[in-house]
């Protein structure tokens, strides 16, 4: 049976948005009958992550949260996976980290430790949002611009596309949004967001086996 692990800390605005937008992905996972381990809020901790990976062996891992060059973090910024410590947990798995900079060092080290593929961002992941929509993040059109291309990558992996193809589809989503923002129909306010979308697009990288497919393990 296909299994997916998702971490969804929710302790600040950024993680609140990532966690809530990930619900769209969870709907797809449920519809496909895939077994989901959803580590939400305080369950997004190092011990739970290690336990699920070791006991359940999910083929796909999605980290939502913060991070730096060497780690991805969970609830209240607890490091979940750190290079030089426990990156071997990602062995034989496809990982997508919606977090800052972890694809810079943690990604390559995970691949060196046997991860099938590591998709993430090699610099800060930035997004614009409307604080007055914080209780209804799905209605936030600004955040949607940034978080839909990210979700597209996960949905593509779930549908059985390769890591490379899923990365490409996400890049196309980013480009499509950018073109819309830079078109003459957009307001100057909307156009001003294009540079941040572009930043996320160029810093999203796919490391490891480009042909890796979720479910092939």
């Amino acid at each position: 049976m296909k299994k997916i692990l998702i971490t969804r800390p929710e302790h600040d605005d950024t993680t609140h948005y990532l966690s809530n937008w990930c619900k769209k992905v969870i709907e797809v996972i449920d519809a496909k009958g895939i077994k989901l381990f959803d580590l939400h809020r305080d369950k997004a901790n190092k011990a739970e992550v290690a336990s699920i990976i070791e006991k359940q062996c999910p083929g796909l891992i999605i980290f939502n949260g913060h991070g730096d060059d060497n780690c991805v973090t969970g609830d209240k910024n607890e490091p979940l996976i750190e290079s030089g410590n426990n990156e071997s947990l990602l062995k034989d798995k496809i990982t997508y980290a919606v977090s800052c900079r972890s694809a810079k060092l943690l990604g390559p080290k995970s691949v060196a430790a046997g991860a099938k593929a590591y998709i993430g961002y090699d610099d800060d992941f930035v997004f614009v949002y409307s604080p007055d929509k914080i209780t209804k993040p799905f209605l936030d059109e600004s955040a949607k611009m940034f978080l839909e291309p990210s979700n597209e990558l996960i949905i593509s992996l779930i549908k059985g596309n390769s890591a490379e193809e899923s990365h490409r589809r996400s890049q196309e989503f980013f480009k499509d949004r950018m073109k819309r923002l830079l078109s003459s129909e957009s307001t100057p306010e909307e156009s001003s967001m294009a540079r941040y979308l572009w930043w996320d697009m160029v810093h999203q990288v796919c490391l490891g086996d480009q042909k890796a497919i979720f479910g092939d393990e």
Binding site: T14, H66, G67, D124, F125, V128, Y129, P131
Partner: peptide
């Protein structure tokens, strides 16, 4: 009225 999230920086 917008804010920008810049990862762990806030």
């Amino acid at each position: 009225d917008k804010k920008m999230s810049i990862g762990a920086s806030g």
